[in-house]
Amino acid sequence: MRELTYNEAAVEAVAEEMRRDPKIFYMSTDPIGPLLREFGAERVRATPITEAALTGMAIGAAGSGFRPIVDWRQVTFCFVAMDQIVNQAAKIHYMFGGQVSFPILYRAAVGGGGQVAAQHSQSPYSMFMNVAGLRMFLPSTPHDIKGLMKTAIRDNNPVISFESSRLMTRKGPVPDEDYTIPLGQADIKREGSDVTVVALAWLVHEALAAAEELAQEGILVEVVDPRTLVPLDAQTIRTSVQKTGRLVIADEAGPTAGFSAEIAAVVTEDGATFAQLKAPVKRVCALQVPIPYSPVLENHVFPDRQRIITGIREVLHGRRSTAAA
């Protein structure tokens, strides 16, 4: 099978959908070359650096029959558009009683590892998960980003495509033929019976490396990639944890009120899954700090395969307290 980078797969998804549906157009502060060349400046619009206006204009265009894509570039840039995201895009369908739909794709690069410091490195998806009315995904492979993005472009709601900065140039197999991946469907990236690691984006690859290393010791790690954050495939995660009885959650974001906290809740508030837990849940997250510049500092802040391994060993040795028995 041919190989594409994560970024190439995303652009291919957009291009295929734009060919299919003339109502799709693209707004970003710097147009993507191949898209501009193929579709022209009317449909691939170079805009002023005004994320708030673009985010809101997409809502109005969507409510008028178009299917806009807005590329925020770095997720941190969309914070100037929070009113349009939170008060408008997320609420408008509900608030107006579902009169019309608002099909919009917002794209945003997340994560760190590029030594670009706090205002260009962040993984704030849980802020958005907390807002009702937005769908969102964060894929880990070229295959997944293409399939999910095509689905998102066809979805009749505002969807945020969170895309991992660290994975942009990473290659992977992508089928030639047309395919989509439904939102809300997790993927088991590696099967195992001893411990479940739920990981996102770059940390899926770190978890797979950790699993490979631990396999030498006979420890069988199951790696679950949720892929979609909203709607979340809770069932696949619960089923995996019911099988392994142990859970590590790896996230490039900080732990506080984060994606990792949500996964822990999804697992522990479900009676059937809770009953199977053999050890406390372990979160392997970034430190709860703004992302620093110096590589020495930045590397210290982010989790990696070694910390995932440490986390796995911790839950393998962990026990449920029997004091109450």
Partner: peptide, 19 residues
């Protein structure tokens, strides 16, 4: 939201232009 609708309707203007 004060000023909240200006961008939305500007998007409707863009839609009208593209139509």
């Amino acid at each position: 939201i004060v000023a909240g609708g200006i961008a939305i309707v500007t998007g409707a203007g863009l839609a009208a232009q593209m139509e």
